[in-house]
């Protein structure tokens, strides 16, 4: 913080502004006096409403980012892209049973992918977008669902693709088919739902209300994981730290509880 100048120069849609340093792009735009009616939403990196297209001082390249997650830099020239018109083809989830060409039936344009990797480079979520388009192309629904899991539908990838592919609905369709038809069912979840129906779990909630932080923490650490019939491995999002399946590392939260 010490070395940082107090103010930086940025260009918004070609016009020069001086803004306070250390601001996110969204905050810098507002600091400059604009009111964002579109191009901003959750401000926490989840909604995908705030794509920014920018160039850095001294570089000819166009970069992309989420405005709420990226700091404004001195010399940036930027514009908000509040919306990318992406094609979505309606389907009835009951009628899209998994098959090798089900995704191609709805989004045949994925076959035009030239493997240029532009989409991956553009994705603010660090997703291997090209790889999920490629797995969709070869009918691998599970991999498409897992690889695209962190997608927040910002549409940046689709604004840059030379083959004019519209990516996120492809990932969405794969994830929906995957969770409806392919994801193993958890018997624990079914039991739990039963317990809720019979109001059995209210007793447990009542007990937990009176536990100390240490006792709660001990329970959390000793919690059991889902098991899935026919698989030796326990299947749980929480077990797969740092993978596409688990965007949230619950361990941090546990630490916070402790202090």
């Amino acid at each position: 913080m010490i070395d940082q100048p107090r103010e930086i120069n940025i260009q918004l849609m070609g016009k020069d502004y001086k803004v306070s340093s250390g601001l996110t792009i969204i905050a810098a735009i507002e600091y400059a006096g604009y009111k964002l009616v579109r191009g901003a939403g959750c401000r926490a990196g989840f909604c995908g409403a705030c794509p920014t297209l920018y160039r850095r001082a001294g570089s000819h390249k166009l970069y992309t980012a989420l405005a709420c997650q990226t700091l404004a830099e001195d010399g940036m020239c930027l514009v908000q892209v509040p919306f990318v018109p992406v094609v979505r083809r309606p389907y009835d989830i009951e009628e899209v049973a998994p098959s090798a060409n089900i995704i191609l039936q709805y989004y045949p344009e994925v076959a035009a992918c030239v493997s240029c990797n532009t989409c991956t480079r553009a994705c603010p979520q660090g997703i291997s977008v090209m790889d999920y388009i490629q797995t969709a192309l070869r009918g691998d629904i599970e991999q498409t669902a897992l690889l695209s899991f962190d997608c927040i539908s910002c549409g940046i990838c689709s604004s840059r693709c030379p083959a004019d592919i519209k990516h996120y609905p492809v990932g969405q369709l794969a994830r929906r088919i995957y969770s409806k038809y392919l994801l193993p069912r958890s018997s624990q979840l079914a039991d739990r739902l039963d317990e809720m129906e019979t109001e059995q779990c209210e007793v447990e909630v009542e007990t937990m209300m009176h536990l100390s932080t240490e006792e709660l923490r001990a329970r959390y650490e000793q919690r059991s994981f889902e098991t899935v019939a026919g698989r030796d491995q326990k299947h749980s999002a929480i077990q797969k730290w740092g993978t596409a399946v688990d965007p949230v590392d619950y361990r941090d939260e546990v630490e916070e509880v402790a202090y």
């Binding site: 992918c113 030239v114 493997s115 070869r138």
Partner: peptide, 25 residues
Amino acid sequence: EQWNCCGVVHSLASDNLIRHIAPIR
């Protein structure tokens, strides 16, 4: 481990290199 489509058909256009990105990748 990771692979992409081969490009399907070899492009004979001498100035359209994007068609060769897939196999070379």
